[in-house]
Nucleic acid binder design. Structure first.
Lengths: 168, 168
DNA sequence: GGCTAGTTGTAGCATACGCTACGTTTACTG
DNA sequence: CAGTAAACGTAGCGTATGCTACAACTAGCC
């Protein structure tokens, strides 16, 4: 029984992984249950077999994306004694990478949904935001840690405006 | 015939007005045709009589909101020779007014939809963004006008983060 | 009064969505 | 091998959505 549980749990993780990828590539807007099932390679019936509701599935996928996103930041800058300007420059550089754009779009899609919080979007958005702020604070060092909220806001604002004004 | 056209046009404007109000109060997420019709005080059938598609109706309402929003900014600060800090402070003060929150939520909802641009959201978002940037540039005066994009990003980022972290 | 054009109500179509009923297959245990 | 529970496929339910067909009413003009 424990073995079966483990297998099922592994399967669930694979599904969450595939759904997360689908979300990044296609957005929440184009993620009906049937479309997700197609991306995962199974029927929507099976998604409901492995997860109670669509909302639970999406929540887990967003969680995975959030942890991956914050984790990927970990090694791009050393901790402590980095100036705010250097942090902003690093974030700007990362933001310009076209490979990062789908994830950024998804991020602001989540924010839009969080505004009328139905479901897991608001908590996920807060979590990602906190992750970023912690990351900034750690680079700044304790002496300038109070600048973190301002730098975060600047970076978020620039990211949003760039996405809106980009042609694509 | 010209008279009939005028009457119909007036009626259209009234509808757009009511729909705009509904959008600000309830968000795009809760704005199905039948819900809009109820707010306007007519049947959804009539909405389709006055407008070709729902998309056209929403687009016009968003346009009205955008122009009203930028227009309301006009007299809160004098033009020219205002420092970036003063502008940011003024925007922060406005953003803290609870009466402004529904509009702000709608704003980020529009941005989220603009990310997968289906319909009028992206152009409306750009338009509002340009309006704000122009407003900032005019307050700064020509000497410091180049600071406008940075200030705009800072203000947008702070507004977004505040909305996400607010309890409600 | 008839006629036409603009206006409105009733009812419902077609599609998409999240989710489920129900039966069948698979795989493991005794 | 028999029996049982997990794993899956097929089909479709109920609801919501954007939109429309169709008939009826109203108003102005001859």
């Amino acid at each position: 029984m424990t073995r079966a549980t483990t297998d099922k749990e592994n399967r669930r993780q694979e599904i969450v992984q595939a759904v997360a990828q689908h979300l990044v590539e296609n957005g929440i807007h184009n993620s009906a249950l049937r479309a997700l099932a197609k991306s995962v390679g199974m029927s929507d019936r099976m998604l409901m077999y492995y997860f109670e509701t669509k909302e639970e599935l999406i929540a887990q996928a967003l969680l995975l994306i959030a942890s991956g996103l914050v984790g990927s930041l970990e090694n791009v800058l050393p901790r402590g004694q980095v100036s705010g300007q250097q942090i902003l420059d690093a974030l700007r550089l990362m933001g310009e990478d076209p490979a990062a754009h789908p994830g950024q779009k998804l991020w602001f899609e989540i924010i839009g949904l969080a505004m009328r919080d139905t479901g897991p979007y608001k908590s996920t958005a807060k979590q990602i935001l906190d992750g970023w702020e912690d990351w900034i604070r750690e680079r700044l060092g304790s002496k300038r840690a109070h600048l973190a909220p301002t730098i975060l806001a600047q970076a978020e604002g620039e990211m949003m405006i760039n996405l809106l004004r980009r042609p694509d």
